[in-house]
């Protein structure tokens, strides 16, 4: 805490010369603004910046159970880049990203357009219904799906059994990634739909009137007016999804107890970092993994944003 206050005071002092000619009321207003922002910066520094700095510092060391901690430079990063478990986890998330995110966002967009078209009856109730899974905590959702997938007593397996069919093993090493995609899709479709739906509601009605006069069908309106108009919202959901995907943790952590052989320690990068820190007791390597993961997320999000913006420029 003490380290943060000088920086904040400096920030407060900095604009003062420029503002000297300003009236007393402007100065007062600025002071009030900084005072209001101060608590945020104190917490932000103490809870985010300082731990991040500490983790960065830790990631440069190597500690052994025998021999203690020694400076290691970038060794941990080099190790991570050649660690098949970490790379495997990142690769798995890339697959997840390319398969699950388009499916989920496509579905969300479809639902949002359907609700917005005004043709669906009971749109309010439906909207709430679609959104409901998001209100279920991720931990609970995973536990619930874990039960549904259960090979012996889960309802899916029982339904197959009743039809004299062999149920697919939804918790095997080969299928679990897709089972996980299903859980995440179920959970976040409604959330993404709400973002898109809110954007759709803000499109000015004149555009629709003009389109109707031109004789455009509902489909054409959706394709040529609605989707381009809400592109920023869609981009936002893509970026959220990218970040969410690389940070998957609850799902592997909970499915591990019902499908221990399918979920390896490095199933997702976040789960891997956790295992390294708390099972292997190698906090330094875990910190390096976490930083690399952060870097991957930053790069992928940036690429998505750049592509989204250039597409937008082209479109308009």
């Amino acid at each position: 805490m003490t380290t943060t206050s000088p920086r904040v005071t400096a920030a407060r002092a900095h604009p003062a010369p420029r503002l000297r000619p300003a009236s007393r009321s402007t100065r007062n207003r600025n002071r009030a603004a900084y005072t209001l922002v101060l608590p945020f910066f104190v917490v932000f520094t103490a809870m985010l910046v300082v731990p991040l700095g500490y983790a960065a510092y830790l990631s440069l060391f190597k500690s052994q159970l025998i021999g203690g901690q020694v400076f290691a430079g970038l060794d941990n990063y080099v190790r991570a880049l050649t660690d098949p478990a970490f790379l495997g986890g990142v690769g798995r998330m890339a697959v997840f990203l390319t398969v699950q995110v388009p499916v989920m966002l496509g579905l969300a967009l479809f639902l949002a357009l359907a609700l917005d078209s005004g043709r669906a009856r009971g749109a309010k109730a439906l909207r709430l219904l679609y959104f409901m899974p998001y209100a279920v905590p991720g931990v609970v959702a995973t536990l619930m799906w874990g039960y549904l997938y259960g090979p012996d007593f889960g309802p899916i397996a029982q339904a197959f059994g009743a039809l004299d069919l062999t149920a697919p093993d939804l918790l095997s090493g080969r299928t679990i990634l897709f089972s996980m995609m299903n859980i995440v899709t179920w959970e976040f479709v409604g959330y993404n739909m709400i973002i898109m739906y809110a954007a759709l509601r803000s499109i000015p009605g004149e555009l629709y009137e003009a389109a109707e006069i031109d004789g455009a069908s509902q489909l054409r309106i959706a394709w040529s007016i609605k989707i381009p108009a809400i592109r920023p919202a869609i981009l936002l959901t893509v970026i959220f999804s990218v970040i969410g995907t690389f940070q998957l943790f609850n799902e592997p952590s909970l499915l591990d107890s019902i499908a221990p052989n399918a979920i390896s320690n490095g199933f997702t990068p976040n789960w891997y970092a956790y295992n390294i820190a708390f099972v292997n007791q190698d906090v330094n390597y875990a910190a390096a993994i976490a930083f690399l993961l952060g870097l991957v997320i930053a790069v992928v999000s940036y690429v998505v944003q750049l592509r989204g913006q250039s597409a937008q420029r082209k479109g308009s």
């Binding site: 039960y147 259960g150 012996d152 007593f153 107890s257 019902i258 221990p260």
Partner: peptide
């Protein structure tokens, strides 16, 4: 070779598996 100490395992015990 089921994973133990989870719900499926407890059900297996009760259901004579």
């Amino acid at each position: 070779t089921d994973a133990d100490f989870n719900d499926a395992y407890y059900q297996g015990i009760v259901s004579d598996k």
